[in-house]
Write a protein that binds this DNA or RNA. Structure first.
Length: 436
RNA sequence: UCCUCGGUAGCUCAACGGUAGAGCAUUCGGCUGUUAACCGAAGGGUUGUAGGUUCGAAUCCUACCCGGGGAGCCA
């Protein structure tokens, strides 16, 4: 007769019952004739209690000398215990060891301090730690929340290609890929142009996938491969885009607070900083932002883009994200619709997260007039023939439209309060790091 | 790419130009309520690489390699 297999996350439902838990030895403390194996199963961690007097000699000896990350199935009785983290313990009755990690080659990540280089080299094992599993669960919640938000509002998921024939914006550096014998293609840096075509077919669409930037950035906010969600709406203006972005951020923060309290607790995240993220977000124009920054001692002048210190300065007096719109057209991509009152301004908006997490959303209203779009392509030295299909969208029933992109890892980093974005994706790809 | 800091035991770090050390991990021993358990003992080193200065270099100098932080650019 075997006891029912349960997950540690559900252990409270089995108080007083005899159950089996399959997992790995997280840590072990012992004191002569009693030992406390900490078992983790991917859903949580529970302290087991093995008392020598109550067990066969061989089983106790096996357990007390078990090595870190050995795999095993433990059967025992669940007991509420105030002294234990999590509130429950398992009194061991029997155990089956699947693999005992040998002392000659012990698990490298001991429960002590480690440097980031060592941890990144062992990322495939580092993922087993309490903090990393918490981050990955928050990431899962954020992704699910993003999809629910759009799905519930009638958006259709239409994914865009990862191999692309040319730059979408012409500015950022692209990764080249040899495509069979004699063709060069590039890894996508945005699905936006395809999104625009899809929006003209389905009205409201979004794409969600990996994005690649070959910029040699070495900062806590950059990856060369990151995930981005990009919604696009037909018959929409800048204000519609801003409302959609604000709603998305509020919804996703709410879902994390609702469903991932335990993980935020592990991460020691100050949840008050997230609870204050409610609509409406403060809104300001680029003009106003430059004036505010000048008053705070920034060296920015009109026409320049914000650096990270500028973004932090802008948000520091608010308890929620800040929306900045109407940037100079010169520092924005070719497809931005100009402001009808000042054609030097682009109808773009950035959402800047508080606490120094920087720009999490960038987007705006696109040009719908074919002649203006053609002129902008030429001004940006882009070959019009490469954009023939894109121009078709303006020839056959053009309408005002817009959308934005949100970086998933930056959002997750903000939710988790992590120092660096690299912990917010399972296997980060960065400048000088592509392994494991 | 530029600026800046660093590379010493499996890991985290010490060591004035003068005998390379500690904690953790590993091994052995002790402990019936431990919370990164604790106590005692043992093993473990071509000080990133290559040159140079010096009676003597982990330490000073040069070049290179690797990594951290930041800038620019971006999500």
């Amino acid at each position: 007769m075997s006891a029912p297999r349960v997950r540690i996350a559900d252990i409270a439902k089995h108080d007083g019952q005899t159950v089996s838990i399959a997992g790995w030895l997280y840590n072990l403390r012992r004191s002569g004739k009693i030992c406390f194996p900490l078992l983790r199963d991917g859903s949580g961690i529970i302290q087991c209690v093995a008392v020598k007097a109550n067990l066969p000699e061989e089983l106790f000896e096996t357990l007390k000398d078990l090595t870190q990350e050995s795999s095993l199935i433990v059967t025992g009785k669940v007991r509420a215990e105030a002294r234990a983290q999590g509130g429950f313990e398992l009194d061991v009755e029997s155990a089956e060891i699947l693999q005992r990690v040998p002392e000659s080659d012990p698990y490298p990540i001991t429960p002590k301090d480690h440097g980031i280089d060592f941890l990144m080299d062992h990322r495939h094992l580092w993922l087993r730690s309490r903090r990393q599993t918490a981050i990955l669960r928050v990431r899962h919640e954020v992704i699910k929340a993003i999809r629910d938000y759009f799905d519930n509002q009638g958006f259709t998921l239409v994914d865009t290609p990862i191999f692309t024939p040319a730059a979408c914006e012409g500015t950022s550096t692209l990764f080249e890929v040899k495509y069979f014998e004699d063709e060069i293609v590039y890894l996508t840096q945005s699905g936006q142009l395809y999104n625009e075509a899809n929006a003209m077919a389905l009205g409201k669409v979004y794409c969600f996938g990996p994005t690649f930037r070959a910029e040699k950035s070495k900062t806590r906010r950059h990856l060369t491969e990151f995930w981005m969600v990009e919604p696009e709406m037909a018959f929409a203006n800048l204000e519609d885009v801003k409302a959609l972005a604000e709603g998305l951020v509020v919804y996703c923060v709410g879902r994390v607070l609702e469903n991932r309290r335990a993980e935020l607790d592990v991460l020691e995240r100050d949840v008050k900083k997230l609870e204050s993220v409610q609509a409406p977000f403060p809104r300001m124009s680029y003009d106003d932002a430059v004036k505010i920054l000048a008053g705070k001692g920034s060296e920015i002048t009109w026409g320049g883009d914000f650096g990270n210190t500028d973004e932090t300065l802008l948000t520091q007096e608010f308890d929620r994200p800040v929306m900045v719109d109407r940037y100079p057209s010169e520092i924005k991509a070719f497809y931005f619709q100009p402001d009808e009152h000042n054609e030097k301004l682009a109808l773009g908006v950035d959402v800047i997260a508080p606490e120094g997490y920087g720009e999490i959303i960038g987007g705006g209203q696109r040009i719908h007039d074919p002649e203006l779009l053609l002129r902008r392509l030429k001004e940006h030295d882009l070959p019009p023939e490469a954009f023939n299909w894109y121009m078709d969208l303006r020839k056959y029933g053009t309408v005002p439209h817009g959308g934005f992109g949100m970086g998933v890892e930056r959002f997750v980093a903000w939710m988790c309060g992590t120092e660096h974005i690299r912990e917010c994706i399972a296997y980060p790809r960065m400048l000088y790091r592509t392994r494991p």
